[in-house]
Amino acid sequence: MISFSKTRMGHTRRVLLAGLLAGTLGWGVGTTRSQESGSPFIYYPSTLPAKTWQLALGATFTTPPKELTEEVQVRAPAIDFHALYGLPSHFYLDGRVISQLLQNHISVGGRWTRSMGDFSVGAGYDVAYWFGFLTIGGFDSKANGWINYPSVTIGYNTGDVRLLFKTEAILNLFYRSYVGENEVESDANTFSGMSFMLAMEQPFWKDTHVTFGFRVTYTKFNWIMWSLYTTFDRYLYYPEFIVGFML
């Protein structure tokens, strides 16, 4: 459970993060996609040539824990847009938008990668802002927050398929929710949980490459479930399928 208090996130920090986000998504418009190896990637820890883009569009399907949804068991789909932008010295920027229209998650982060034969490793740090609103069916609710995700990825290239294992920590920096005229905030820097993903990236048909992944998240707070106002201080389990088509 998040511990709530009535303090606010610093304005300067929010402006800096918003600027970073806008800059990354807007930076380099007009440059063309380019891959050093010829095989595009999104999650695989590989080197992206400087000033080149890699885009992907797909979907995620998360099964919320029955502790929260109780009788209803569904795989909640979300649109998943990913953009990478190459930087010098094995670095690149990673921007991602996950949207269910009523709730959205926008992240921007940096990656560094290193290859060793068929293996490669990557390290990254993402800063995410999420927000949601619900004003129908007995709800007059909205919420938003900031989450950080430090991550490590290990990759293995079989030749036909690129396999990867990514693990990331989930750090909740800020949470605010409203119901009607009432408001609750928290800026406790909280370690909320971890996620682990196995994925493969490969050609599907002709030059179309796909990401096909399975991610499990053990966390006390998952932004995608904000409207259920969880009170559990327990690590709940969220399995998630990820499918992405590289553009």
Partner: peptide, 9 residues
Amino acid sequence: APRWTLGTQ
């Protein structure tokens, strides 16, 4: 009896 997510009203 309204839902709590409408606030204190």
